[in-house]
């Protein structure tokens, strides 16, 4: 075995020997299942006539046509769940600083770039695993509820399966963005605050604000969350655009490349500002 493959094995062992990943997976599953199940029930209920539109307020003219509902629900896996792989990646990296495990890590493998590369690969895979768990919640629970109302959950559509595959990819890349953030901001508390503030507050606001003019909309497309939604191919924001015009998103592969660029930029800059520094 080469030292690189051993390094990857060690990074997997680090994740597997602490409880963090499955705590995050469990919380994520519950959160997405609740939202996907609840919203599926609401929309499918209205669509099937089981719930009267008047019962949910100002009527259904703002609601999407039903055909776009299942993909919207399924995309919750990444559009809502992406914060979890980012946290996993950031915790895996900042934990090394916080618990001073960089010392034994670099003693066992002094090739620091190789260690960071191995961590990125391990987290990419773990991000994909979280993606599968998130899809079990969004597609699994969502399709069950939609089907229960006698509607078509669109599971036979190739577009649905493309969305599922690209969601796994998006979640994997998000985990590597977390690694990059962790080396960029090695303080664990600061990192967590940044992840939560940015994903839950700053970016949604920016994205919403950017929708009001065409120029800002073009820029807004390059925000990481927007790029992720473009990669996956469906998003709540495409429906919430003011005036009802669906915002023109990037192509899915463009979104993927933008997301990847964030991951690489954060990791490379982080490598220089913290990873290769003195370990004292």
């Amino acid at each position: 075995m080469t030292s690189f493959s051993r390094a990857i094995g060690a990074e997997f062992a680090k994740i597997g020997t602490t409880r963090m990943w499955w705590i995050l997976a469990a919380v994520m599953f519950g959160y997405i299942a609740l939202l996907a199940g609840g919203l599926s029930a609401l929309f499918a209920g209205i669509e099937s006539g089981a719930i009267s539109p008047d019962a949910v307020g100002s009527g259904s003219q703002g609601l999407p046509s039903f055909g776009s509902l299942p993909p919207l629900i399924y995309s919750f896996a990444s559009s809502i769940g992406y914060v979890f792989p980012v946290l996993l990646g950031a915790l895996a990296t900042t934990g090394e600083f916080r618990h001073q495990t960089l010392t034994p890590t670099f003693l066992a493998n002094p090739r620091r770039g190789q260690v960071l590369g191995a961590k990125t690969i391990a987290l990419f895979v773990m991000g994909a695993v979280l993606g599968v768990v998130a899809l079990l919640a969004s597609v699994g629970v969502g399709a069950l509820v939609i089907g229960a109302f006698g509607l078509d959950p669109l599971l036979g559509e190739s577009a649905t399966w493309a969305l599922i595959g690209r969601t796994v990819l998006a979640m994997a890349v998000w985990a590597t963005i977390g690694v990059g953030l962790g080396v960029l901001v090695p303080s664990q508390v600061a990192s967590i605050v940044i992840v939560l503030a940015f994903t839950q507050f700053v970016e949604p606001l920016l994205r919403f604000a950017s929708l009001f003019t065409e120029v800002t909309q073009g820029i807004g497309n390059y925000l990481p969350g927007a790029a992720s939604d473009a990669l996956v191919g469906a998003s709540f924001f495409t429906l919430a655009a003011p005036g009802g015009t669906a915002a023109a998103m990037l192509e899915w592969w463009q979104g993927g490349l933008v997301l990847l660029a964030y991951a690489i930029a954060a990791t490379v800059i982080g490598y220089m500002v913290s990873w290769k520094r003195d370990v004292t």
């Binding site: 075995m1 030292s3 051993r6 094995g9 062992a13 020997t17 034994p104 890590t105 066992a108």
Partner: peptide, 14 residues
């Protein structure tokens, strides 16, 4: 655990 701590670095060092 102590054993897992050592296992991580034993893995890295082959």
């Amino acid at each position: 655990t102590a054993r897992n701590h050592l296992a991580v670095y034993a893995r890295a060092a082959g």
